[in-house]
Structure formats: C-alpha cells, structure tokens
Design a protein around this nucleic acid. Sequence first.
RNA 1: GUCGCGUUCGUCUAGUCCGGCCCAGGACCCCAGGAUUUCAUCCUGGUAACAAGAGUUCAAAUCUCUUACGCGACGCCA
Length: 460
Amino acid sequence: MKSRFAPSPTGYLHIGGARTALFAWAWAKKQKGSFVLRIEDTDRERSTQASVDAILDGMNWLGLDHDEGPFYQTDRFDRYKEIIQQLLDEDKAYYCECSKERLQILRDELTEKGEKAKYDGCCRDKKLNSGVVRFKNHLEGFVSFDDAVKGLITIGNKELDDLIIARSDGTPTYNLTVVVDDHDMKIDTVIRGDDHINNTPRQINLYEALGWQLPEFAHLPMILGSDGARLSKRHGAVSVMAYRDEGFLPEALLNYLVRLGWSHGDQEVFSLVEIVELFELKNINKAPASFNQEKLIWLNQEYIKKASTEYLIQQLQWHLDYQSVDISNGPEFFRVIEHLQERSKTLVEMTNGLKMFYQDFSEFDEKLAKKQFKDSQPIELLMNKLSALEDWAANNIKDQIKQVCDELEIGFGKIGQPFRLALSGNGNAGNIDIVSELVGKKRTLERLQMALDYISQSCN
RNA sequence: GUCGCGUUCGUCUAGUCCGGCCCAGGACCCCAGGAUUUCAUCCUGGUAACAAGAGUUCAAAUCUCUUACGCGACGCCA
C-alpha cells in the first residue's frame, strides 16, 4: 500500500495541506505501507525553491516523515512527454491552436447562456501539429467512482471537456502529471482535498485511455475559517510554521488536525502512536470543518502539562533563541520549567513567564503597582526578615511571610500580592515562596527595594 | 449560471450503514458554585443542536422525496 502527499511549491505549508499530509501519512503507517512525498512543480512561473524548503521544513517540524522522495515533477518531463506523445499517436489527444482570447470569449458566451463553461472541441479533428495538447474526452456516458469518504460519485462526461495536458511550450499540466506519477510511483490510495473531486473523472478517463489500473480515491473535506469560508490568510495564521512561532507543540497541532474531520468515538487526545493505530478512512467526516483556535490552545496546554521537562526544554530552545533569552544567569532551568509547566498554554507564554527568573526589569506594571504598592511597612518588614534569612528555601521564605502577617496582624493578601508584583513586575507568578526561591535572594531583595522606591516616589 | 459535494449544540464531533437503548452523548468555549497564595490547575453543576417541509412506519437524527442554505469546480494553477 502506498499513499502520497503532493503539494505544489507556491507558498508555505498551510494547515489544510498539513492535515491532508497527516491523513495520508497516518493511513500509510497504519497499513505498514509507504508514504511518498512529491513536489508538483510543473508550473515554472509560480514554483519556487523557497516554497519547497518551507514545505519540507513544515513536514519536518510536524514529524511527518516520508518513506520515498521527495520526487520533483520537473525531473520527470521526459516521461510526461513520452506519455503525451503516446496519446497523440493513439489519437487519444490532439493539438489545439485556439487562442486564449477565443477561449475567453467562448467561456463568456456559455456562461451568459447559463451553460457550463467548457471547451467546444473546435480543433478536435483538425489534425494540427502545434499548440497545446488536449486530451480527447468521451462525449457520452458517465464516470463513476466509489470515494472512500464521500461514497459513490457520478459525473456525466458531458460535463467534462477536452482538457489541456500540455501547454504550448510543451510542459505538461497537472491532470496529466498526477496520473502518470501516481501510476508510475504505484500509488494505490490517493488522499487529497475535495477541491479535486471535479478533476477526478478527467483523471479516471486518462487512466483508462492509458490502460492503467485506478487507485482508490479519498477526498477530504475542506477546512473552513470561523466564518464558514475556506480557510485563508485573513482568518489568521494558516502557515504551519506560524504555529510553531506562536508556541504550539507539533504533536498538539497534529492532534488537533486529526480531529478535524476524523474521529474515534469520543476520544479527544491521541498520541502519534494512537493516531496511526486507530486511523480509518471510513471514519472521516464528509462535511467541512471550521478551524477553532480555542480548542487547539486547550490541547496544547494538555500536551505541555504532560510533557517531560527534557522535551519542553528542547522545544523551548527555538523560542529562547528567537527572543534572545539568556538562561545562564539564574536558577536551574528545569526547575523553572517544572514550575511553569502547569500554568502555560503555549511555549511563548512559558518563555515570557521564565524571563523574570533570568532577566532584571526596571518597571512595574503601572496599574497593578498603583493598587498593590501603597503601604511600605509590610514590604520593609519582609525585606528585613528575608535579608537575614540564611537558608534560602521556599519553606523558610514562607515562614517569614507568615511572621510578617502575624506581627502586623494583616492577611496574607496584604503582603502576598505586593510581593508577587515586586518579584514578577507584572503579577504573573505562581506560588510566591517557590518563585522567590527560584528568583534568588539577591534579586528578590533588589526587587523589594524597587517596590519601596516606587512607594516613596509616588508619595511625593 | 452549470455541475458536484455537504447540512447534529457557537465550534469539533458520537449516533446514521443494520429505524426503537437518543425528549440526542462527549470535547472546546461560555456561565454558576467549590478548592486554591494572583494567574493557572483541579472538582461539581449548567446553558446549548438533529436546516425546513412532506412521505414510509407502531416507531425516524437514522429510510425516501422536495426546498433552502453553504462550500467547491468550471485556467496554457495545482
């Protein structure tokens, strides 16, 4: 068994493409088959090396490894030429010299008449020998195929026209190259977006004209944006790598994507191993699905909570580099990660949360500071006690805070909140005693002093 | 416009093949309580859907038909 992912390199790997790749990958892995990566770059105008690299990067980040390829269609032009010539020789294709202008006028006329815009077969029997090459489609009859997700689909040949299989410069077009490649590469399961359903009957006719055996088709419904329109840039990030940048774990994205259009009962969380084990084409939904970032965030958080600190540290590296955070001057990194793990939805959030342990800051959040930094007495007392503390450990720090509460007869909030703000600068911190321990004695005292300075300044 | 595909809570979905166990279950979000040293986490509870109509049947989310709406395709793009 063999499946493939065949993107055209005209941009980055987007969410929809990634899901198609994931499904094709999962199905191949489940069958212990082979997963082929093929770059469909026959459009020389729009294909770029940068896009090829971006797609490879995306696949790599997601961990969707291919067993064969990547193959490039531009490397196979001789083979396509051979097939085109064969079709020409067998009178199954013909040259057409109709100008683009004539074609456009034809389309406009037909559309105006309320008919389907299709080529009228003008050059069909002219026996020309230059121009584009068109495939001779059947004029009558129907094409039927049993789609693995959509079921039986039937389209009349009357709806199809004589499609162009070679441009006037001799280069082959999509419908020809997919058929030749899928056949030559022995792809037996074609998994792709359902925007290709309309192409399928044409391709089937091509398969038959060449006397080749048909693969099984599985057409995946589209992914829509929150407004029900096809997912596009205006819905926010659509590039897979943008999700890495925003702090998502690849397995969380994969898990989210696999549940978009596929399900296994009520199960929501799937490890990669489970995806491969449980995946079934027949459980794919026929209806399109809307992308919902909230649920992705939830899943991401679940994965962060369950991840090992080693893994998080590894995944965090990119974000540390990106934000130029130096973790050499501060507490042991894994302890900070453990502390942040329970309270971070994304790696970006985590990166922001860990800065307070390694970087000094010069200003407090203004709103919070106004609210929390009013009374200097508790802070001064705490500072005195803490500076005398020799064993800088969370438990001991906690005791000192308690003593401050007892001595001044105040509640925990009166000192806890200002302390939290002093330590973090923005109020975002977990258990105050642990945070303080991790921040370290020197920095803790410096920050408390900063808080006192703030109070004395705002009093004047 | 023509053809194709689709339609269960706001969103992702279970159930649809083989009609009764579904006055429709789970998850995200949201809301209300509880626990907690902010946040986060955790626990308990709640709101909320079978697109509409007709038919078949003792019985329909499930079968049939019609309508509506949405999406896709209609390139010398893939």
